[in-house]
């Protein structure tokens, strides 16, 4: 599978989806003008990955900030990951960022995937 690699910008996150090396990570800031358009390639990549997924997948979210339009798309990403066997979400939050911790907990209540919480 091709690697999806997007450089982060001041309003979009850095994204690496690399099946071969087992790296699945969305990090940084997400406040794009058009969140649906921005996350479309991610959702398409996951759809393809779901039919040929690795035995286990640790999908990392290490977000500093996201806007509400992105939060809907993050839920869409999580929903797309939900049916993949061996899926685990690793949700990072800054140690003094209670809002990001709470956001992760809320997402974990909305989908049936195990979440691991880590601070950075």
């Amino acid at each position: 599978m091709e690697i999806l690699n997007l450089e982060g910008t001041e309003d979009t996150p850095k994204i690496i989806l690399d099946k071969k090396n087992g790296i699945f990570e969305i990090s940084g800031r997400s406040l794009p003008e058009d969140s649906a358009e921005f996350y479309r390639p991610v959702l398409e990549w996951i759809e393809q990955y779901s039919s040929e997924a690795n035995a286990s997948t640790d999908f990392v979210f290490k977000l500093e900030y996201f806007n509400t339009a992105s939060s809907k798309l993050i839920l869409d990403v999580l929903s797309a990951l939900e049916d993949i066997k061996g899926m685990k979400i690793v949700w990072y939050f800054h140690e003094d960022d209670e809002d990001m911790e709470e956001a992760g907990q809320e997402f974990s209540e909305l989908v049936e995937i195990p979440f691991e919480f880590k601070t950075y």
């Binding site: 003008e33 969140s35 509400t68 339009a69 809907k72 839920l75 809320e106 909305l110």
Partner: peptide, 26 residues
């Protein structure tokens, strides 16, 4: 507010304008 947020995020679709209807709640 937390319940309303979860209710909206579960049921919303992104509008033509690109919003999720969550801004004020947030």
């Amino acid at each position: 507010l937390k319940d309303l947020y979860k209710e909206i995020i579960k049921n919303t679709t992104i509008s033509d304008k690109g919003g999720a209807g969550l801004g004020f709640v947030d």
